[in-house]
Amino acid sequence: MNLPAYNKSALVVWKKNLKSFWLIYSQNIMGLLGLGILTFFALMAIFGPYLVSITTLTIDGVTQVMHPPTSNYWLGTDDLGKDVFAGVIIGSRVSLLVGLAATAISMTIGTSIGIISGFYGKFTDTLLMRFTDVFLVIPWLPLMLVMAALLGPSLGNIIFVIGITSWAGTARIIRSQTLSIKERPYVERARAIGSGDGHIMIYHILPNVFPLIFANTVLVAAIAILSETTLSFLGMGDPTQVTWGMMLHFAFSMGAVSFGAWWWLLPPGICVVLVVLSFTFIGYALDEVLNPKLRRRDQ
């Protein structure tokens, strides 16, 4: 490739950053555990659906419903005789997708509002923060339920609802960090070399709040997956999609509990817990790794 020298070195910078990041991150056992679990589910979400399909189980031509695990169908079948194991694998895709997409929305809104509010201060700040407070104090579950009910049960709507109900905390945290960063001399220096507000926010504030955004949104991802599960479980999910939440919903409403069909109920539940746990672990690990106070000592 015939890149200009600096572009080449920009690549080197990336590699160097990643390497030094990994050097510290890999010391963190919790973080490694979280990353391991997440990688497992990510691989499952990406490749799993190509390997399995939800077949309706027939044994000797008779449809067997709520059948306990067999050697062919590792996690048994549900009330329609569908393979639970395949459902868990296919559901991982949607659950992770919802988690990531909702997080992306929440992160974008939260970060933009936080930075703009903190950077401009005064009237803008007051206005945006009151707006944020509204989202912060509204109990999010009822709001989510109402919105999901109003908008109708589709995957897109679920993502949207979770995304716009979970950004307020991020906005608050980012705003307070912005307030301290904008007083730093390097922001003043940026102004002195002729940078405009937009440039300063993107090139000086954003990179310096980024660790915080990162550590914070990983937790939002956990909440988003949990929310999706909750919504689906409460029957606000998209019935055409196989998700862990939907599986739990059907398992519950079709009487898996009274039937004692643990193989139908436990696997999606455990998956949700594991994924949420992995995000939380990563979040804490990142917080420790990226926290400037903890890092300053190493330098």
Binding site: Y6, P185, E188, A192, I193, S195, Y203, N208
Partner: peptide, 27 residues
């Protein structure tokens, strides 16, 4: 132009030497 007192605080800790010096040209 201005040069500040504290050479640590007046440089963006997440900017490399190149981007620090190139930034005035870019903006």
């Amino acid at each position: 132009q201005i040069i500040f007192q504290d050479p640590y605080e007046s440089l963006n800790p997440r900017q490399t030497v190149f981007s620090t010096v190139a930034e005035p040209l870019e903006v």
